[in-house]
């Protein structure tokens, strides 16, 4: 008899949960709730909706565990469910709510030293806020899954329901667009204008249903 793995992988936990272990699923929830919430809140722009979608995603995952293929990555599977839930949410609500996230420095998931906090806050504002303002939903999600979830191109393709070639093209266009937008914003900052607009002007366009390309 072998001792249980003290630090099982997500896929191993998913296999145990599939076999009926609620403890294993509890651990999966603990590992994925923050990741899913952070992914979903970028699209919904509303914490309550994102929390609700996170809850729906994980409950649906539990209900459909019998259909989970252990050969696949659990992260890919659960992010695919989350994305579909988000699409259904947008279809149902029609228009995304334009609520400010109200993020403060205390909200950052950061255990880094305080001296780095200011530099990091500036960095995040420049890159990810710029990405959120300048990219459409699909390129933004591809970029998010690539850099924040560390998914491979194949996994991103599975989550987004696209081919790997398409995802590579999406990532390339997203990087090119973001590099241009970032350079423009930095030039504006050098000339004394605010680097990051308080209300990103493109956000309003992205929130209109016709422009929502998921």
């Amino acid at each position: 008899m072998t001792a249980p793995d003290p630090n099982p992988t997500d896929d191993e936990l998913a296999r145990q949960a599939r076999a009926g272990s609620l403890v294993a699923f509890d651990e999966l929830v603990a590992r994925f709730e923050v990741r899913l919430f952070r992914f979903l809140v970028q699209g919904t722009r509303n914490e309550t909706d994102a929390a609700e979608l996170t809850q729906d995603t994980l409950v649906t995952a539990y209900q459909k565990l019998a259909g989970y293929d252990p050969a696949r990555s659990f992260a890919t599977w659960v992010f695919t469910i989350a994305r579909r839930k988000q699409i259904d949410f947008f279809r149902h609500h029609g228009v995304r709510r334009d609520h400010a996230l109200g993020i403060t420095a205390d909200d950052l998931v950061d255990e880094a030293d305080p001296g780095r906090l200011a530099e990091q806050a500036e960095e995040r504002d420049r890159v990810w806020d710029c990405a959120r303002a300048s990219l459409a939903e699909l390129p933004f999600q591809a970029l998010w899954l690539k850099y924040n979830e560390d998914l491979s191109v194949e996994q991103i393709a599975a989550v987004l329901g696209r081919t790997t070639i398409h995802v590579k093209v999406i990532l390339f266009r997203a990087r090119a667009t973001l590099a241009t937008a970032l350079a423009r914003w930095e030039r504006a900052a050098d000339s004394g204008r605010p680097a990051v607009p308080a209300a990103p002007p493109i956000t309003a366009r992205r929130m209109a249903p016709p422009a929502l390309t998921l």
Binding site: L22, A51, Q55, V59, Q120, E123, R124, D125, W128, W144
Partner: peptide, 26 residues
């Protein structure tokens, strides 16, 4: 860069598990 995202509400984990215990997995 670290993206600017808030943390999920504190009761989210318990809320998920409460719902999970109520539903029957397939």
């Amino acid at each position: 860069a670290r993206p600017a995202t808030p943390l999920p509400p504190p009761g989210l984990h318990d809320a998920i598990l409460r719902r999970v215990r109520r539903v029957e997995p397939a």
